Computed example of a mutant assay.
Amino acid sequence: MLDFVRKYESFRAAEQTGLSPAGLNMSFYQQIAVQDFLSGIEMASVAEINPGEKSLLDGLIRHNETYSLQMQQTKIEKVSVYSGSKSGDERVSGAEIAFDLLFSCGEFEKFGSSEIAEALDVCRDMLRPGGVMIHALQFYIAPTPTPFWLDRFAAFHQSFQRGGVEPVGNVMGPEPLFQPDMASTSDAALFELYKASPNMAELRMQAQNVCLIYAARRVS
């Protein structure tokens, strides 16, 4: 999959959780994008890259083996057993583990376009054959995308041509195009970001802030 979270997904999830309209933000979009893949998972080995205080792993601990991956500059620095966001983690050797499912929320935003391919390869190599990785991250789509955003999208798109993985779900491409049914950050929220980060003001006046979903299965 290489696609974007849609409004029907965010509205449905907001109804189910009783979320207020103010809660429809990028963090929420990333969580629901990954949650769709985690639903019903049992007896699996599941890992999250750099989990935060409120991790989706918390809902998986009881029926799965859960792990935290500390990733810095496209390298896995530490693999730990995840036993809850408020508890200490037991460090283990990453070489001994292959995951059924690996995911991240917002982490791939930290990589430059030239680093994305390497980071995806690192994640692929930590999966069992048939294992799936899901990455949700914010993305900006303007009427005329700049080379920066085109390069980022292409880095994900080209991973399916390099081999070793196959898409899980729909693949948009070859260029990102905004569609009205995409879930996006509200103008009110973008205005607050516009004021807080003058260096990105022009982008936020011209582009929609949406949530990109990448999902791939290891085939070799």
Rank of each mutant, 00 (worst) to 15 (best):
M1H: 13
L2P: 07
K7D: 12
Y8N: 13
E9A: 05
S10Y: 04
R12G: 01
A14W: 07
Q16I: 03
S20P: 00
N25K: 01
N25L: 06
N25W: 00
Y29K: 01
A33C: 13
F37Y: 13
E42D: 08
S45G: 04
V46K: 00
I49N: 13
I49W: 00
L56D: 02
L60F: 05
H63C: 01
N64G: 07
L69K: 00
Q70C: 10
Q72Y: 00
K78S: 07
V79I: 02
K86Q: 01
S87M: 07
R91D: 11
E96D: 04
D100W: 02
G106H: 04
F108P: 02
E109T: 12
K110T: 11
G112P: 00
S113W: 04
E115C: 02
E115T: 01
E118C: 11
A119V: 06
V132K: 08
V132P: 00
H135S: 09
A136G: 00
I141Q: 13
A142G: 04
T146E: 14
P147C: 14
W149I: 06
A154T: 12
A154S: 11
F160P: 04
E166I: 13
V171M: 09
M172Y: 10
M172I: 12
F178K: 11
Q179R: 04
P180A: 06
M182H: 01
M200Q: 12
E202L: 15
E202G: 03
L203H: 09
A207L: 13
Q208C: 09
A215N: 08
A216V: 15
R218F: 10
V219H: 04
S220A: 14
